[in-house]
C-alpha cells in the first residue's frame, strides 16, 4: 500500500492514524522531502530515538584516551627533555587529546550514520524512486 501526499498536514494526520492503529513504524517506509522535528516527535513516540549518540560517545572517549596515551608513550619511548618540561606534560598533551576527541568523535558519528542508515545504498544511487517533494507512506505487505 502506498499513500502519497503533497500536503504535510494531511500526511501527518494519516500517519498518526496508522500509528495509532497499532502498526509499528518499523513495518513501513516513510519518505519525506526534508527533516522535520514534529514528525520525528510523532514517530519517536512509537519507536526508539536514534542510537547514533553512542557512536559519538565511544568515538570521543577513544580519541581522548588515544591522545593522552599516545603522547605519553612517545615521551617515554625515547626520553628526551625538551623545553625543560616534564615527560608527561599534561597541559600540552591536553591539546592533542582534545583534538583527537573531536576528530574521533566526529568520524565515529559519521560512521554511525552510514551504519545505522545503511548507507551508501548502491542500488539507489542511480535509480531512486522519484517522489520529488511528496510525503509518502509505504506499508509493506505481509505475505
Amino acid at each position: 500500500m502506498e499513500f502519497r501526499f503533497t500536503n504535510r498536514e494531511q500526511f501527518m494526520e494519516k500517519l498518526e492514524n496508522i500509528l495509532e492503529s497499532g502498526m509499528s513504524p518499523d513495518n513501513m517506509k516513510i519518505v519525506m522531502p526534508n527533516p522535520d522535528h514534529e514528525i520525528e516527535h510523532l514517530v519517536e513516540h512509537y519507536k526508539s530515538p536514534s542510537k547514533l549518540k553512542y557512536f559519538t560517545l565511544v568515538g570521543g572517549l577513544t580519541g581522548c584516551l588515544t591522545g593522552y596515551a599516545f603522547t605519553a608513550w612517545t615521551a617515554i619511548d625515547w626520553q628526551l627533555v625538551t623545553g625543560g618540561k616534564p615527560f608527561f606534560s599534561w597541559p600540552a598533551y591536553t591539546v592533542i587529546a582534545f583534538e583527537l576527541t573531536i576528530l574521533f568523535g566526529a568520524l565515529a558519528s559519521f560512521a554511525g550514520l552510514l551504519i545505522l542508515g545503511k548507507l551508501p545504498r548502491f542500488s539507489k544511487m542511480l535509480n531512486p524512486e522519484n517522489y520529488a517533494n511528496e510525503y509518502v507512506i509505504i506499508i509493506e505487505d505481509e505475505d
Binding site: 516513510i30 519525506m32 549518540k53 559519521f110 545504498r121 531512486p128 517522489y131
Partner: peptide
Amino acid sequence: LGWTGTFKEWQHYNQLYKFL
C-alpha cells in the same frame, strides 16, 4: 550515497547533524 529520504535516514541525519 543513494539517499532516499526515508524517515530512518532523516532520524539519524538529524542526530548526526546536531552532534557534529
